[in-house]
């Protein structure tokens, strides 16, 4: 089966006055049809840049190399017209901040209907009624009235639902949700995640959830990818990764998730040190300076993402990859 999205050796570099910054360093991943993949990592780990590159949203000064194929078609270097046929219809994205993602001077209805008119060539009146149905679908009350409203008349949660409705209108094969709930409060967060889950169940689309919050991802993702300093350091089935993290960074991240049931801690556990600054000269393993298990080998030999020892058992064939010389077992 052709993977919905396959990224090979993707590198994103930015020219900068101090030299070149590497936001994504040779990342490879595959997303199968219908799969839900969570991407976690601290700010600046390159998780957003990776998918902005896939959508062709990086500015001119970004140098992208490698390969990004969507349903077998190369997206990198594709003509804008070819990109625009898939963007917004088969490959859609929703962004972190719903407050700024809608064009302020256009009515909600126009913005929603435009997607259908633009991609499927339906009439405006048909597109409007489809928009009403989709707004109902994402549980926006009184959708007919909303069509005539402007973005500023809607709350943040409502706007994120509109964004979600917009990205679902053309029945996408892959929806990329870049921190879809970061700007929302916790109850809205749960509702949006529930909508994403339902939408995925109905359409069978693949879903990418980008977040720095493991808790948000854990409930929905089939597979979780952990990124650090522009590299994918661990890639495993969600329950496997949460239960048995193999990369020390994943393990440390999991320790930082506060628990309601555990003993009350005097201090929030945190990861010592800082993620590498952009432009900083990295050691062979970029996590080595903060890693409790680091040894001399980590500073000279870059670890590669490989099948983790003990993961290739019969039932869960080859579903855990880790980039570490001394993985936890």
């Amino acid at each position: 089966m052709i993977p919905t999205l396959s990224v090979d050796e993707l590198t994103v570099r930015f020219a900068h006055r101090t030299g070149t910054l590497e936001a994504v360093a040779g990342a490879s991943l595959r997303i199968e049809p219908g799969e839900c993949v969570g991407i976690v990592g601290e700010s600046g780990s390159g998780k957003t840049q990776l998918f902005l590159a896939a959508m062709g949203l990086l500015r001119g000064h970004a140098k992208v190399s490698g390969s990004i194929r969507f349903a077998g078609n190369e997206l990198l270097g594709a003509k804008a017209a070819a990109l625009n046929r898939v963007r917004g219809s088969k490959l859609t994205m929703i962004f972190q901040d719903p407050m700024t993602s809608l064009t302020p001077h256009l009515r909600i209805g126009t913005q929603l209907a435009e997607v259908l008119v633009c991609h499927l060539g339906v009439s405006w009146s048909e597109a409007r009624s489809a928009a009403v149905r989709m707004l109902e679908h994402v549980r926006i009350p009184d959708p007919k009235r909303r069509l005539k409203q402007y973005p500023y008349e809607l709350s943040g949660g409502m706007r994120q639902r509109v964004m979600l409705a917009m990205s679902l209108l053309c029945k996408p094969d892959l929806l990329i949700a870049d921190e879809p709930t970061t700007a929302l409060d916790v109850t809205l967060q749960a509702q949006i995640m529930e909508l994403l889950r339902a939408a995925r169940g109905e359409t069978g689309m693949a879903l990418v959830l980008i977040s720095h919050d493991l808790g948000v991802i854990a409930g929905l993702a089939d597979r979780i990818l952990v990124m650090y300093a522009g590299r994918i350091v661990e890639n495993a089935a969600a329950d496997e990764l949460l239960r048995r993290p193999r990369h020390p960074y994943t393990a440390e991240l999991l320790k930082c998730v506060p628990s309601l049931s555990g003993p009350r801690l005097a201090r929030m556990p945190t990861l010592p040190g800082q993620p590498p600054q952009p432009g900083e000269v990295l050691q062979a393993c970029p996590f080595a300076p903060r890693c409790p298990r680091a040894a001399e080998r980590c500073r000279v030999e870059p670890p590669v993402l490989a099948v983790a020892a003990g993961a290739a058992n019969a039932t869960n064939a080859a579903n855990a990859y880790v980039a570490c010389h001394f993985p936890l077992s």
């Binding site: 963007r87 994205m93 700024t100 809608l102 991609h119």
Partner: peptide, 14 residues
């Protein structure tokens, strides 16, 4: 602005 990025991501031409 992000809504321009969103419009590009939505497949709108220049």
């Amino acid at each position: 602005q992000e809504y321009i990025a969103a419009a590009v991501a939505g497949g709108a031409g220049t």
